[in-house]
Structure formats: C-alpha cells, structure tokens
Simulated scan of single mutants.
Amino acid sequence: MSSENLASHTFTHAEIKLFYTEQYQYLVALDLATAEFMPSKRSLLIKIENRQKVFDDLLAIFEHFDIALEFTMKHIKKALAANGGYISSAIYIH
C-alpha cells in the first residue's frame, strides 16, 4: 500500500505509542482507525533510524498522517526522561 493510501482521509483516529528498545532504538506503533474506540483498520510499526532526531521524526509522522498534536514536545520529552528514554542534546545531572 502506498503512503498516499495510508494518509487517506478515510482514517479519522490514530493511537500512537513510542517504545525505546533494549537495543537503544525508538519504535513508533501507529494504529489508524475510521472511528474513535473502533478496532484499527491499519497498524504500522515505524523504526526511528536516528534516535537523535526522534522529535523531528515524530513531528514528520504527525504531519504526514495529519494527526493533531495534543501534547507539546516539552511533555513528550518529560515523559521520555521519566521513563529512561534517550533525549538528544540533554545534559544529565545526578
């Protein structure tokens, strides 16, 4: 299926989960559905190639699938830090 079909207006709801693996890689699980609380019609697992650009890639995914961003990058970074995720250009203080 082409990316044009995936970005089709037929998908009106998305659920996104960000995973940080033991291999220090980010994976984005994206479930697209035609209605809220309905089973997803399409599930994707997207590997973030460069973990230093995870936020840029997340924004690109949101833009490609026309997903409204309910959380700011500050909230996403805070959640990542709280769960031990890698944040590029962060200074860690003990």
Rank of each mutant, 00 (worst) to 15 (best):
K17V: 13
L32V: 04
K77C: 06
Y92D: 10
A29Y: 06
R51K: 15
S8N: 08
A35E: 14
N50D: 15
S88I: 02
I61W: 14
S40F: 08
Y86Q: 04
A7V: 11
I91N: 10
K78V: 05
F19G: 02
Y26Q: 08
L6C: 13
I93D: 07
D56G: 02
T72L: 01
E22I: 03
A33Y: 03
F62K: 00
A82T: 10
A35S: 14
A90K: 12
E22V: 05
K53Y: 12
S8V: 05
L32W: 01
H13L: 04
F62C: 08
I67C: 06
I91W: 02
S3P: 15
M1A: 15
A7K: 14
Q52W: 08
S2F: 10
Y26I: 07
L45A: 08
D56H: 05
H9P: 14
L59H: 14
A29P: 01
A79R: 12
Y26H: 02
E63W: 03
Q25Y: 06
T12C: 08
V28K: 00
F19V: 07
S3M: 10
N50F: 09
V54A: 14
Y24F: 14
H13P: 07
F65Y: 14
H9G: 11
A81Y: 11
Q52G: 15
I61Y: 13
E4A: 13
K47A: 14
L30F: 00
A33I: 04
A60F: 03
